[in-house]
């Protein structure tokens, strides 16, 4: 989904501000929300992709205004409302990873799809329709686009693809620099 969470390359957000003596949690409620979210996920109420998808569904203006844990609290409320009535699938059920069947190899030139789905995806906007080189191969891992909706797992290889900064940003990119992104196989062509 092309929403506010997809921040890579956006302008206007200002300086990176590092707080002096920053505590782990700024308020006790943040610590509790952190614990609740992790416990609920481990208990099998939802998976990590569903959690991310739910956070991303916050209306963009609210997303940008909210603090990190405010987003978590909001998402936790919506996840409970969405999932609360269902029987909990035990998250300890063993998932056997199928063998890796990679179509690309290290060193291959690949191009990312220009896909703009409304659903949750991990192909950031700034990296769509771009050419890069496969650096590393991993997995397979379940495709988030599917797992975020509680559907049966679709296992795919994940490639670390290196893009030249100028390929991503045009003249604004430094000629010496690169950005490497981890991409599921179906994001590539």
């Amino acid at each position: 989904m092309n929403e506010a969470h997809d921040l890579g390359g956006q302008h206007g957000h200002g300086r990176v501000v590092a707080e002096k003596n920053e505590p782990v949690f700024h308020e006790p409620w943040e610590g509790r929300v952190h614990a609740l979210m992790n416990l609920a996920r481990r208990a099998g109420l939802f998976n990590l992709d569903e959690m991310r998808r739910t956070i991303e569904q916050m209306p963009p203006a609210e997303y940008l205004r909210a603090s990190y844990f405010e987003r978590w609290l909001d998402a936790l409320e919506r996840l409970i409302a969405e999932k609360g009535g269902e029987p909990i699938k035990p998250s300890s059920s063993p998932t056997t990873r199928p063998p890796l069947d990679a179509h690309f190899k290290v060193g291959d030139q690949v191009r990312t799809r220009n896909a703009n789905p409304r659903h949750h995806t991990r192909l950031a906007r700034y990296a769509r329709g771009k050419s890069g080189v496969v650096e590393l191969i991993h997995g397979p891992y379940p495709l988030p686009d599917v797992r975020a909706y509680g559907k049966a797992l679709t296992w795919q290889p994940v490639y670390t693809v290196r893009f030249r900064a100028q390929e991503l940003w045009g003249g604004e990119g430094d000629p010496h620099d690169s950005v490497s992104i981890d991409l599921w196989e179906e994001y590539l062509e």
Binding site: G139, R162, S178, V179, I181
Partner: peptide, 12 residues
Amino acid sequence: TQVKVWDSSADL
């Protein structure tokens, strides 16, 4: 110097 940025977009 080459600056290499790594965007952790998957399970790594």
